[in-house]
Design a protein around this nucleic acid. Structure first.
Lengths: 182, 182
DNA sequence: ATATAACATGTAACTATTGACATGTTTAAT
DNA sequence: ATTAAACATGTCAATAGTTACATGTTATAT
């Protein structure tokens, strides 16, 4: 499906960007809430997009001699990206989730061991939710206008918070069910 | 991380099972709500678990001559599985989501094109939610006791329904935001 | 009877992803 | 001055996962 290709094209279509900054998006920024790739996957894919004439590259020097590569989208690149954006694909496979897998097999461990797991998970998801909510209040006090870059950022951030809320609610239901029974 | 290894060990630990039935779990059953593997990945992994002495195999004949392989867990296999179950691992990377990726880049398409996408997604997730809810009402009228196989089944099914609910709620917020602005 | 779907097990080639290796520069803090 | 963190770009080996190829059996419906 080459989804990484389109993730890169989208970022480059927003304006010239380096491979390093693209990798940062995947690892620390808003994008990390729904896509991920290591730099070892990003650099070869950029090379490939260049070979396919979907992006161009400009070598620039930062400071004394440090080299950077600035990638820019081509007309074909933009066309292919928008064509992908408009596609309506079937729902992909449900995402894998190791904690749900452990829950599925929880009958192999004691109620108190599973309860401990649930508390640990709750802590991690509450922490993540807190971080997401602070990003939200820091950046937005109202819903950005559709058509701006900010709308996309806002929508996926909101989606990430709602996903954490739902996960936390599920963990609490599980905790309730377990603790009322031992 | 070899998570597939533990997913297989867990299924086999519930009782002797064939590779075919394991594949069915991943593709059609409750398990499909949080893990997935094709039979082309399952068969080689079973071979590997056998080589590692974590499972044993018994060849049985179904009907006239059709061969089946029944896998059973060994003492070491059970020990390794429970050891994994009790592990507390850090939160993995956030799952990839192509629709969130499209939303992130929605400023490249018109409001009405994005609105159409949202309606399509809503249809798919509502359908999935309906299917999950019918499985739920068909199988459970109360919360199963912790420690039973049924508790795990129930918990992950409930989690899947809550996940769909949250996704649908998010799609509706996006739809609201877009339709009030064009 | 016969066709279709489900049962049953595998391999091979390819794509996607990760983790480790490898190297060098610039900025900010002490 | 020096050190640590961040900047910046790559490769390589291994693991994970998908798609297509390959083959044969049994049960169910027409």
């Amino acid at each position: 499906m080459r989804t990484l290709k389109y993730a890169l094209l989208g970022l480059i279509d927003r304006g010239p960007i380096t491979g390093y900054d693209i990798s940062k998006e995947f690892e620390k920024r808003i994008m990390a809430n729904f896509w991920h790739a290591k730099h070892s996957q990003v650099y070869p894919e950029l090379k490939r997009l260049f070979d396919e004439n979907l992006i161009t590259v400009e070598l620039i020097i930062q400071g004394e001699k440090m080299e950077k590569k600035l990638y820019t989208i081509t007309t074909e690149g933009h066309a292919e990206f928008v064509e992908w954006l408009l596609r309506d694909e079937p729902l992909g496979v449900t995402p894998k989730d190791v904690f749900r897998l452990r829950t599925f097999f929880s009958d192999f461990i004691s109620a108190s061991d599973y309860e401990q797991h649930l508390h640990s998970q709750l802590g991690k998801h509450n922490f993540k939710k807190g971080y997401l909510e602070s990003s939200m209040t820091k950046s937005y006090d109202s819903i950005p206008q559709y058509g701006s870059k900010e709308f996309g950022d806002y929508a996926v951030l909101l989606g990430a918070i709602m996903r954490e809320d739902s996960y936390i609610a599920w963990l609490k239901v599980c905790l309730d069910a377990v603790s009322h029974q031992n």
